[in-house]
Design a binder for these strands. Structure first.
Length: 215
DNA sequence: TGCCAGGCCGGGT
DNA sequence: ACCCGGCATGGC
């Protein structure tokens, strides 16, 4: 199993090339993006982030102080804007209150403890927490999303109704614990899910890992 | 035009 | 412990 997972990864990498995730320049931008992209396409999130950048508001202190209503307006293109404005505020309260807006301080905490604390924030679930830890903090937490579950359950590596932790454990226990690998592998999975292994069509004839999959 | 997108929460059973 | 409705815009 360890071998085939790495082979799948290698095939994806050969096919798509390096994806250089996460799109975003700073840890803070990545963390904001992680919340904004919940059940939302990245193109919509980009528009919201551009709005924040244009207003020069992509800054912990400024977003912490801005009125929630105004924040909601700025992130409108990302969808669920009222809900997400609230969630961003919840995160910012945590981030400013505990770390004064310093990602270095935040990620110098014990990672398991930090993960629990992130999960305690209303609006941050397991995928968002792991995305923050992996892509903003370079901590080895494998991110599980809808694409991962769809692709790997479709091909019977996992069960369709496996829990998040079960799926995460499947990857963690069958891969070397390596941040770069976790980073790139998840990015490759998302690309495969978007482009080829979509909800409606499996398109297995052009799937770059089709020959590696059972059935 | 309807379906989908890099989830999560709260209330009900 | 599950199951479900709500949240909302933009692209194809």
């Amino acid at each position: 199993m360890k071998k085939i997972l790495l082979t799948i990864y290698q095939s994806l990498y050969d096919y798509f090339g390096p994806l250089n995730w996460w799109p975003g320049n700073t840890p803070f931008e990545i963390m904001i993006g992680a919340i904004l992209t919940q059940n939302t396409s990245w193109t919509n999130v980009e528009k919201a982030i551009i709005n924040l950048k244009t207003e020069k508001l992509l800054d912990p202190q400024k977003l912490y102080l801005i009125e929630e209503k105004k924040l909601a307006h700025l992130i409108r293109p990302s969808g669920y804007f009222n809900l997400k404005a609230k969630r961003l505020k919840n995160f910012l309260t945590f981030y400013m209150g505990n770390y004064k807006g310093s990602s270095e301080k935040m990620f110098s905490d014990d990672s398991e403890r930090l993960r629990k604390n992130l999960l305690a924030i209303n609006g941050i679930g397991q995928e968002t927490a792991d995305s923050i830890l992996l892509y903003a903090g370079n901590k080895p937490f494998f991110v599980i999303d809808a694409y991962t579950k769809r692709i790997f359950s479709r091909h019977h590596f996992i069960l369709e109704n496996d829990s998040y932790s079960q799926v995460q454990n499947f990857f963690s226990s069958n891969l070397p614990k390596n941040v770069e690998l976790y980073n790139e592998f998840h990015a490759q999975i998302v690309m495969l899910g978007k482009r080829i292994c979509t909800k409606k069509h499996q398109n297995c004839s052009i799937c770059p890992i089709g020959h590696l999959l059972a059935e």
